[in-house]
Design a protein around this nucleic acid. Structure first.
Length: 301
DNA sequence: CACCAGGCAAGCC
DNA sequence: GGCTTGCATGGT
């Protein structure tokens, strides 16, 4: 096979792909850490969702990962990269570990992987995410896909692809109940539609240039741009700082209130090119310790 | 009723 | 440059 695998043996059996003995891989960590809004739990150790126009049910059985109803072609072309299977997370965790805060976060989110998602989907999704909560973000995106996406038949059920810029511009955006984000969504869709090379230019650009290009889009600020860099462009040096990151960094690292830019600067120095991955371990930890996080320290400013 | 959610743009200084 | 305010909607 052409891919380089740390993991495993791949078996194609009964229209399922089975990855044997996969390490550093836990579905709840991957899909409930706020990077992806289109996969949801559909059973014991099982998640179902859509990406790159394909639906997928994925489950974990011991240390084996099962991709249901999937061809080896789709695995090689889509899911292998989407699930970030070429990255050695054990090595990354070794490099990040050392202080008690990160060790605890890694201990809880040991199975996190940074998904390599579709860039346009990430741009629209994180525009929607601003000043919003995760369940509602998922709901708005799901409505967008049902309204403007294309039908996908999979395992006897109907799913919907993430829509094209054209389809977004043609649909009734008010159906999403996205509020003031409507104009940002349509603006970004129009930009991508009118500049067909924009996404490829983003992918090819240096991180500095890509960030500047993203910040020039109406409705995209520093935090959303950082999320797009990390989740849509694979720039793992990007460390998005939202209200939860501010709370957890203030409590665990600074022991006092501080600004988001202070946190960004600190993270860049401390985590470097692994900042985005460190951020995901910390974010997952923060979501699981909401009640213990002292909301007095970071009040979301 | 208030306050908050993976923030941002615009307006002020 | 930094700081404040309004913003749509839905949940608690």
């Amino acid at each position: 096979m052409w891919y380089n695998l740390y993991i495993m043996e791949i078996i194609n059996k009964d229209n399922n792909i089975v990855l044997k003995n996969v390490s550093d891989f836990e579905l709840s960590h991957i899909f409930d850490c706020g990077q992806c809004f289109r996969f949801s739990k559909t059973g014991e150790n099982t998640y179902t969702g859509v990406s790159f126009g394909k639906a997928l049910t994925i489950s974990k059985n011991g240390d084996d990962i099962v991709l249901h109803g999937t061809s080896s072609e789709d695995f090689e072309n889509i899911w292998y990269n989407y699930l970030d299977l070429s990255r050695d997370y054990s090595k990354i965790k070794n490099r990040l570990s050392g202080d008690g805060c990160m060790d605890n976060a890694i201990k809880e989110g040991y199975g996190i992987r940074i998904l390599n998602q579709d860039l346009f989907e990430v741009i629209i999704s994180f525009i929607i995410s601003q000043s919003n909560n995760i369940p509602r973000i998922k709901k708005i995106i799901e409505t967008l896909c049902k309204t403007a996406g294309e039908k996908i038949n999979y395992e006897g059920k109907t799913y919907y692809s993430f829509p094209s810029p054209e389809a977004i511009l043609e649909c009734d955006i008010s159906l999403l109940h996205a509020g003031y984000r409507d104009k940002y969504i349509t603006g970004a869709a129009k930009l991508v539609k009118d500049s067909p090379d924009f996404l490829d230019e983003l992918k090819a650009a240096s991180s500095k240039t890509a960030k500047k290009m993203l910040l020039s889009i109406y409705g995209i600020g520093n935090k959303v741009a950082d999320c797009i860099m990390l989740f849509g462009l694979g720039r793992t040096d990007s460390f998005p700082v939202d209200v939860w990151m501010q709370r957890i960094m203030e409590q665990l690292y600074f022991k006092k209130k501080c600004t988001k830019s202070e946190i960004s600067e600190y993270a860049a120095k401390k985590f470097g090119d692994l900042g985005g991955i460190a951020q995901q371990y910390l974010f997952y930890y923060a979501l699981n310790h909401k009640n213990e996080l002292n909301q007095e320290i970071g009040n979301g400013k």
